[in-house]
C-alpha cells in the first residue's frame, strides 16, 4: 500500500461557479495504474472535480479556482504551463459520446495530427488504439465510415480510442456508460480493466455496482466535500461514515 506512487493530487482545492461553492477544500490523491471511482449524489461536485484536472473549467466564464492540483509534481495551474500539453497528458472521455462528424479514422487521426505525430506513424497508432479499445474487429473494414453512424457503445469506445491514441498518462472518464445499454456498458468496463495496466484512470459514476466492478479505490463525495475514501472493497463493505453507509445502501442519491 505505502509504495503506491501518487499520480494526481489536489491540495486545498476550492472551486466556485459564481457565488456557488462547488468544491470545498478538497484534498485527494490518485494512485498510478489504479482505477479510482468518484461516487456521490448528483450535484456533489464529482464531475466538477474531474474536469478541473484537465482544466476544462478554463472556458467557463464564472468559474474560480483556489488551491493546487498536481500531476506528479507538476502544478497544473501554473501560469507558465501549457494547457494543451496538460490535456494531452490527461485525456478525457465524456458522459455522452462526442465523436467528431468525421470518419472513424479521422476521429482518431485528429489528435495525432494536431499533436504533430509523424504522418508515417499515424496509421499504426490508429490501428493500435482501435485494438486497445476493443473496436478494431468491428470497424476495421470501414474506417472511412462517418463515426456518427456507429452505435452509442461503439461511439464511446471510439472516443476512448481517440484518447488512448495520444498515450496519455491519465484518463478521466465522466460517467462514460450513463447513456449506454447494459451490454455496451460491460464491454466498456472490460476495456477499463485492460487499460489500467498502462494508464491511471479516474472514473465518475452514478452506478455503485459499476464502481465496485471496475475500481480499485473509491472516493465518496457529498455537497462538495470528500466524505470518505478507501479501497473499493473496504468502502463498500465497511463504510466508516454514516453518510457513506446511507448512500451505498441506496437511502438517497
Amino acid at each position: 500500500m505505502t509504495e503506491e506512487k501518487i499520480k494526481l493530487s489536489t491540495q486545498n482545492l476550492n472551486l466556485w461557479f459564481g457565488n456557488k461553492h462547488v468544491l470545498k477544500n478538497i484534498n485527494a490523491a490518485f494512485a498510478e495504474n489504479k482505477v479510482t471511482a468518484l461516487i456521490g449524489p448528483s450535484g456533489c461536485g464529482k464531475s466538477t472535480l474531474l474536469r478541473s484536472f484537465n482544466r476544462m473549467h478554463d472556458l467557463t466564464p464564472d468559474a474560480r479556482i483556489e488551491g493546487k492540483l498536481f500531476l506528479e509534481s507538476l502544478d497544473l495551474y501554473d501560469k507558465n504551463i501549457s494547457v494543451t500539453q496538460v490535456r494531452k497528458r490527461i485525456g478525457m472521455v465524456f458522459q455522452k459520446a462526442n465523436p467528431f462528424p468525421k470518419s472513424i479514422y479521422d476521429n482518431i487521426n485528429y489528435g495525432l495530427k494536431i499533436n504533430d505525430i509523424p504522418q508515417g506513424d499515424r496509421k499504426g497508432i490508429v490501428e493500435n488504439a482501435l485494438k486497445e479499445s476493443y473496436l478494431w474487429e468491428e470497424v476495421k473494414d470501414e474506417l472511412n465510415k462517418p463515426a456518427t453512424r456507429l452505435s452509442g457503445g461503439q461511439q464511446q469506445r471510439l472516443c476512448i480510442a481517440r484518447t488512448v491514441a495520444l498515450r496519455p498518462e491519465i484518463i478521466l472518464m465522466d460517467e462514460p456508460c450513463s447513456a449506454l445499454d447494459p451490454i455496451s456498458t460491460l464491454k466498456i468496463e472490460d476495456l477499463i480493466h485492460s487499460l489500467k495496466d498502462k494508464y491511471t484512470i479516474v472514473i465518475v459514476t452514478h452506478n455503485m455496482q459499476q464502481a465496485q466492478r471496475v475500481s480499485d479505490k473509491t472516493i465518496f463525495m457529498y455537497l462538495g466535500d470528500i466524505i470518505e475514501e478507501a479501497d473499493t472493497a473496504e468502502l463498500f463493505n465497511n463504510p466508516q461514515k454514516e453518510l457513506t453507509q446511507n448512500y451505498i445502501s441506496g437511502h438517497f442519491g
Binding site: 472556458l59 494543451t84 500539453q85 490535456r87 465524456f94 499533436n115
Partner: peptide, 13 residues
C-alpha cells in the same frame, strides 16, 4: 461537447 472533445485531445481553442 464538440468543443470539449477537441480541447480534451489537446487542441488549442
Amino acid at each position: 461537447s464538440m468543443r470539449e472533445a477537441a480541447l480534451g485531445l489537446g487542441a488549442t481553442q
